[in-house]
Simulated assay, not measured.
Amino acid sequence: MKIIPIIRPDELIRKFQIKNFKLYDVRTGPDAKEKYLEKHLKNAAFVDLNSDLASIDDPKNGGRHPLPGFQDFIKTLGELGIDRDSHVVIYDDKNGANAAARFWWMLRAVGHENVQVLDGGLQYAESQGYPLSSGNESYPKTQYVPDYQNWQLPQIWIDEVKLATQNPDFVIVDVRESQRYQGITEPIDLVAGHISNAENIPFSENLDNSGLFKSPELLKTIYSDLFENYDRDKIIFHCGSGVTACHSLLALDYAGFEIPNLYVGSWSEWSRNAL
């Protein structure tokens, strides 16, 4: 039976009874590790977006957060204490909209099905009385033995995206905030704007006013037109650096859709190539 990709804090407490349950804090920012050490959900180990979930080199070639090599990521999973039998739950401090969703996508992309993202993230779990801890926590190292030797979820690369901008059979979805999409502001990348012919469905539309994921039924109404009008392999999601786009892919999976293409390089790569 397919696992539901979103989990609530009250459900999470019951997961402690599951053998090989693992909880990970994937918050981001320049002081993310320091904040984790000060306060995190009990039993959560820290995962670093930049060193564990990306292989950062030249943003012009792959964007700000390109994927690490497949085998490098498999090694990282073992170092984090994850094996094939692990039931993994991930959270961040941005309603799952940042590195939690990215880590979820990467695990699913290596064929790991038992992975969920904590609805509402750190703040909501804390407000619900979930137990907290401080200091560093970790799990014993393991060896992750994958069934595959490369990523299993669909990706698309910059040359293919360029062709897609000229092909009406494709749709490109930009999940960044509308002001970034419109080029009104750009707080991170060098150039403001968006990929030619891209639509804007901000990732914030996946969430209700409390910062929780909308129901699968409501999410289905948001995205049904995409899947009614385009084949799954011709739908492309992107963001600034291939991280937040995974939040919308997570929402799509929660709503029961097949996961479409992720353009990992996203605007950070596209904008640096004068396209």
Rank of each mutant, 00 (worst) to 15 (best):
D57Q: 12
G240L: 03
D25W: 02
G135L: 03
H112P: 14
W105V: 09
D85P: 03
R8E: 11
C239T: 10
E113D: 14
N206Q: 02
S51G: 01
G183H: 04
L53H: 10
I259D: 10
R176Y: 06
Q182I: 03
E38T: 11
D31G: 01
L153W: 07
I56H: 03
V115Y: 03
I6M: 10
E186M: 08
L122G: 05
E126H: 08
H238K: 03
E258F: 09
A274T: 00
D72Y: 00
T142L: 13
W157M: 04
I13P: 00
D169H: 03
Q123P: 03
E228Y: 01
Q143R: 13
T28P: 00
F16V: 04
F46W: 14
K15R: 14
I201D: 06
I4S: 15
L77I: 10
L218R: 11
K214P: 09
E160D: 15
P168I: 08
H65M: 00
I56T: 11
Q71A: 07
L53E: 12
W157Y: 15
K19S: 14
V145R: 06
R108E: 13
S86K: 08
P168K: 10
G129A: 10
Q152S: 12
A198G: 01
S133C: 07
D159F: 04
S196P: 00
A44H: 10
S224H: 01
N136F: 06
R272I: 01
R64E: 08
D119Y: 02
S248Q: 05
N98C: 10
A32N: 09
W157D: 12
Y148Q: 02
G211T: 08
F170H: 15
Q123F: 13
V264W: 07
W151Y: 15
R180G: 00
A255W: 14
A97W: 06
Y36P: 02
V26A: 15
F203Q: 01
S196I: 12
Y223D: 03
M1R: 14
P131T: 07
Y24N: 04
A198M: 04
L67D: 07
S55H: 12
S55M: 06
A125S: 15
N261Q: 11
S271N: 04
L23Y: 12
L77V: 09
Q149Y: 02
N43V: 06
K19N: 15
N197V: 14
A251M: 08
E160I: 06
E11H: 05
L132R: 11
F213M: 09
Y148R: 09
D83C: 10
Q71K: 14
I236A: 02
Y130R: 02
D93E: 09
R84F: 01
H247V: 11
Q123A: 13
E217Q: 15
N261C: 05
I188G: 05
S134L: 04
W267F: 06
H87D: 12
Y36V: 04
G120T: 09
F170R: 04
L212K: 11
Q155P: 00
L77E: 12
D85R: 12
N209F: 01
P154Q: 07
D52Q: 04
I222V: 15
G120Y: 05
L249Q: 05
T221C: 02
Y124M: 04
L80A: 02
F21T: 04
N273Y: 09
N261V: 00
K19F: 07
V110C: 14
A45L: 08
